[in-house]
Amino acid sequence: VRQEELAAARAALHDLMTGKRVATVQKDGRRVEFTATSVSDLKKYIAELEVQTGM
Protein backbone atom coordinates (compact mmCIF):
# COMPACT_ATOMS: atom_id res chain seq x y z
CA VAL A 1 0.00 0.00 0.00
CA ARG A 2 2.78 2.44 0.87
CA GLN A 3 4.35 1.97 -2.57
CA GLU A 4 1.05 2.98 -4.19
CA GLU A 5 0.76 6.00 -1.90
CA LEU A 6 4.34 6.99 -2.74
CA ALA A 7 3.68 6.71 -6.47
CA ALA A 8 0.52 8.83 -6.14
CA ALA A 9 2.33 11.46 -4.09
CA ARG A 10 5.16 11.64 -6.62
CA ALA A 11 2.64 11.98 -9.45
CA ALA A 12 0.90 14.78 -7.53
CA LEU A 13 4.22 16.57 -7.07
CA HIS A 14 4.93 16.20 -10.79
CA ASP A 15 1.50 17.65 -11.60
CA LEU A 16 2.12 20.68 -9.38
CA MET A 17 5.63 21.23 -10.71
CA THR A 18 4.32 21.18 -14.28
CA GLY A 19 1.65 23.79 -13.70
CA LYS A 20 -1.42 21.99 -12.38
CA ARG A 21 -3.08 24.13 -9.70
CA VAL A 22 -4.35 21.38 -7.39
CA ALA A 23 -3.23 17.78 -6.91
CA THR A 24 -5.09 15.26 -4.75
CA VAL A 25 -3.70 12.23 -2.91
CA GLN A 26 -5.05 9.69 -0.45
CA LYS A 27 -3.25 10.17 2.89
CA ASP A 28 -4.06 7.85 5.79
CA GLY A 29 -7.37 6.94 4.19
CA ARG A 30 -8.52 10.48 3.51
CA ARG A 31 -8.33 12.75 0.50
CA VAL A 32 -5.81 15.60 0.79
CA GLU A 33 -5.39 18.40 -1.72
CA PHE A 34 -2.05 20.06 -2.33
CA THR A 35 -1.47 23.31 -4.20
CA ALA A 36 1.66 25.03 -5.49
CA THR A 37 1.96 26.80 -2.14
CA SER A 38 2.00 23.48 -0.26
CA VAL A 39 4.69 21.77 -2.35
CA SER A 40 7.00 21.68 0.68
CA ASP A 41 4.35 19.78 2.66
CA LEU A 42 3.96 17.31 -0.19
CA LYS A 43 7.74 16.83 -0.37
CA LYS A 44 7.78 16.09 3.39
CA TYR A 45 5.00 13.54 2.93
CA ILE A 46 6.97 11.89 0.10
CA ALA A 47 10.07 11.76 2.32
CA GLU A 48 8.03 10.11 5.11
CA LEU A 49 6.71 7.50 2.68
CA GLU A 50 10.20 6.84 1.36
CA VAL A 51 11.42 6.14 4.90
CA GLN A 52 8.46 3.85 5.56
CA THR A 53 9.06 1.91 2.35
CA GLY A 54 12.82 1.73 2.89
CA MET A 55 13.72 3.85 -0.12
Rank of each mutant, 00 (worst) to 15 (best):
D15M: 10
T35M: 06
F34C: 02
D41Y: 04
K27Y: 06
A11H: 10
R30S: 09
L6R: 02
T24C: 12
D41K: 10
T53F: 09
M55I: 07
E33C: 08
E5S: 09
R30W: 03
R30H: 14
A23T: 07
V32R: 04
Q52M: 09
R31L: 15
T37M: 05
A8M: 14
F34D: 01
M17R: 05
Y45F: 07
V51E: 14
L13Y: 10
Y45E: 01
G54A: 10
H14P: 00
T24F: 15
R2L: 13
R10L: 14
A12N: 01
R30K: 15
M55D: 12
Y45L: 06
Q26S: 10
L16G: 00
A12P: 01
A23D: 03
Q52A: 15
G19N: 05
Q26V: 15
T37V: 09
E33T: 14
R10I: 12
E33R: 08
G29I: 00
R30A: 11
E5N: 09
A12L: 02
E4G: 08
V51H: 07
G54C: 09
F34G: 01
G19T: 04
D28A: 04
L49I: 05
T53Q: 11
D15K: 10
R21Q: 15
Q52S: 12
A11G: 09
K20W: 05
R21G: 15
R10W: 11
V32D: 02
E48D: 11
A12T: 02
H14T: 10
L16Y: 01
V39G: 02
V51A: 14
A9I: 04
K20V: 11
R31T: 10
E33L: 07
V39Y: 06
V1R: 14
V25K: 01
G29P: 00
E4W: 15
L13M: 06
T37N: 15
A9C: 08
A12D: 01
A23V: 15
A7W: 11
R31A: 13
A47K: 12
I46T: 00
S40N: 12
K20L: 07
I46K: 01
F34P: 00
T18K: 11
E5W: 06
T24R: 04
Q3Y: 13
L42V: 01
R30T: 12
V1N: 10
Q3I: 14
S40I: 11
A23E: 03
G19C: 05
S40W: 09
R2P: 06
T53I: 11
T18H: 09
G29M: 02
L42H: 00
Y45Q: 02
K43I: 15
E48W: 15
V51G: 08
D15C: 10
T24L: 07
T24S: 13
M55E: 14
V25Q: 01
R10P: 01
T53L: 09
F34Y: 07
G19V: 02
A11Y: 06
V32H: 06
V25L: 06
M17N: 05
G54D: 09
E48P: 00
L6S: 01
Q26I: 15
K44I: 12
K27V: 15
Y45K: 02
K27R: 07
L42A: 01
V22Y: 08
A47E: 13
H14I: 12
G54M: 11
T35F: 08
E4M: 05
D15R: 07
K20E: 07
D41Q: 12
L42Q: 00
L6C: 03
E50W: 07
A23H: 03
R2A: 04
Y45R: 02
T18Y: 05
Q3D: 06
V1W: 04
H14L: 11
V22A: 06
E5T: 07
A47R: 12
K27A: 07
M17E: 12
L42D: 00
G29N: 06
A11C: 10
L13H: 03
L16A: 00
V51S: 12
L16F: 02
R2H: 13
L42N: 00
E4F: 11
D41M: 10
